[in-house]
Nucleic acid binder design. Structure first.
Lengths: 195, 195
DNA sequence: CTGTGACTTGACACGGTGTAAAGTGGTCAA
DNA sequence: TTGACCACTTTACACCGTGTCAAGTCACAG
């Protein structure tokens, strides 16, 4: 039925998502997801044709929840390039903890699944365009520090803000998300903003 | 026999290594390795108890070849912190292309194999100590830019120089290893070295 | 009462890892 | 010469997780 509270696909996504966000971490098998959704393993295949598709749907759901697009355009408000760089880093630093679990899972399967890889690359491209926008405005202000070109500056900023970097810093070095935003803002300003 | 040119374990390692370094990439199965070494799949298990063990041995062999330890201590020659930072980055930037294939493979299996994870973490720790040394000398010179502490500076430098960062930059953004060294040297100097 | 759709159960193929056991052939020592 | 040992082979199998298939159950709608 349409809603005995939620449609089955929705319930599956919710189940997968909660497993993903549980401390145990993302070793979720199809059977785990099914069990958590109160379904048989086969029923999951009735709604999603592969594990990757479930993961992608979960990631989409998370993005929708946290309003990736909306918050992305928020940072467009900033007037100067330097401000926008700051805004962008703090937006991103706030976003990352919300998507950690899903990103982790997606990252793990992207090697074996072209669809997952595409979903990942999409997000990375969106993220890159945020970097490019900040750097572009900075260049327009004439405050992009030499010898950086908008291209190379974007590349470097983009990798510095990569999920993996954030993950290592927070997980293995114990940085808080706030530390991350603070330090990376300083670093990015030191590198890219001319005095 | 001891050497009809090379012992079997050595031959296995060499075979795995050449597969790893081949353009095809690291999808190497035990059967691939065995075939390349001219052995049956089971024979490989006679010398290594798991796939992970082979990969670890390969990584060790590569390290030995490229003299990780030796080259690591080379950069200890530099007098000032700033020079040492430069030396460290160019050493590392020269080392990365050599170990790309093995690092990639190790990184892929480290999630499922504790031994592989340990091998990876070892290397990362070694690499981190290189970062710490450069930053430490810089701090000693009184030229570590505020507001960085040796700790946080090391953390950030370490992640900026991570294999994943290098990999994205060179593979998906088309940076050459030389670009990488040049740009990251500039970036690191901008962030960490006080004027 | 019948049909349809959502779901279940149970079975199976596949690919990959790792294990087990019996057999082959060469070398070395008594 | 005999026989023990060794490195290796062949064959077979268990296990795990993904994905497929087919038959059956059950409820609700016309």
């Amino acid at each position: 039925m349409s809603s005995d509270l939620a449609s089955t696909p929705t319930r599956i996504i919710a189940a997968a998502r909660s497993l993903l966000e549980a401390p145990a971490g993302p070793s979720l098998r199809m059977s785990d997801i099914a069990k958590a959704a109160g379904l048989s393993r086969q029923a999951v295949y009735l709604h999603f044709k592969s594990r990757a598709e479930v993961l992608i749907a979960v990631t989409d759901a998370i993005d929708r929840d946290h309003g990736l697009e909306a918050r992305l355009s928020e940072s467009r408000a900033a007037a100067t390039g330097a401000e926008r760089l700051d805004a962008w880093i703090s937006f991103w630093g706030g976003y990352l903890p919300d998507v950690r679990a899903a990103a982790d899972a997606l990252l793990r399967i992207k090697d074996n699944d072209p669809e997952a890889a595409a979903a990942w690359d999409d997000r990375m491209a969106a993220m890159r365009s945020g970097c490019a926008a900040a750097i572009g405005l900075l260049a327009q202000d004439g405050r992009l520090a030499p010898p950086w070109s908008p291209e190379t500056a974007t590349d470097l900023l983009w990798t510095m803000l990569s999920f993996q970097t954030w993950d290592t810093l927070t997980r293995t070095r114990g940085w808080t998300p706030e530390d991350y935003v603070r330090q990376l803002t300083i670093a990015a300003r030191s590198i890219f903003v001319a005095p």
